[in-house]
Computed example of a mutant assay.
Amino acid sequence: MSEGDSGMEIVHLLREAIVELALTQGEFARNHGMHTTDVRALICLLDAGRAGDLLTPGRLGAQLGLNSAGTTSVIDRLERAGHLERLPDAHDRRRVRLKVSEQAVALGQGHFGPLIARTLDLLSTFDESEAAAVRRFLAGVRDAAQSRASG
């Protein structure tokens, strides 16, 4: 197998993994009466929370690529379902910050927990240099995808 064939095999495996993950995400959305955009919003909010930040509606909308009305619809749906809390901003009373509810975290852990556990089990079979290569590859793919608009 040539180097190009090997590279394309990895690209195809990555595509297959992305498709399977998207199907898993879609199943979670259907099972809990959500849009896939709602799940993406929860992921953005969880990622921000892990980084010690609570997003404003405007920042969430920017990450999702939604206008103000679309962002409000997502936030309202998630809040009505009990998946999201609006918290007053500690520094500006006019702003709110968004936080994923414990209920939503529990739902996510119930659905995605087994997949995460299997992924961590797989990663535990890699030595540190292999894990570093996987990390570097995935970060590079993420960066390439994020730069798609700039060509």
Rank of each mutant, 00 (worst) to 15 (best):
A51E: 15
T36I: 11
V96E: 03
G113C: 01
D89N: 07
A90E: 15
A51P: 01
E9R: 12
E130A: 12
E128P: 08
R80L: 06
S6H: 14
E102G: 07
A133W: 06
F28S: 00
E85Y: 05
E20K: 09
F137C: 06
E3F: 13
I116Q: 10
R80A: 06
R50I: 00
R15L: 15
L64E: 12
G4D: 15
A69L: 08
L78C: 00
R86M: 05
G4I: 13
K99S: 08
L84W: 08
S2L: 12
R15E: 15
E102R: 02
E79K: 09
A149N: 08
L66N: 08
E20A: 12
E85P: 07
L123G: 01
G49R: 03
D127F: 02
A41M: 02
D53N: 11
A145P: 02
R118G: 10
G140A: 06
H12R: 15
Q103K: 09
T36E: 10
V100M: 00
E79C: 03
T56W: 13
L115W: 09
G49S: 13
F112T: 00
I10H: 06
A106V: 09
E102N: 03
L21P: 01
S101V: 03
A41Y: 04
R95D: 11
V96K: 10
A81P: 01
V134I: 06
R94W: 12
Q109C: 07
V105G: 08
E3K: 15
L55V: 00
T24D: 03
D121P: 00
R118L: 11
S150A: 14
A17E: 05
L66H: 08
D121L: 11
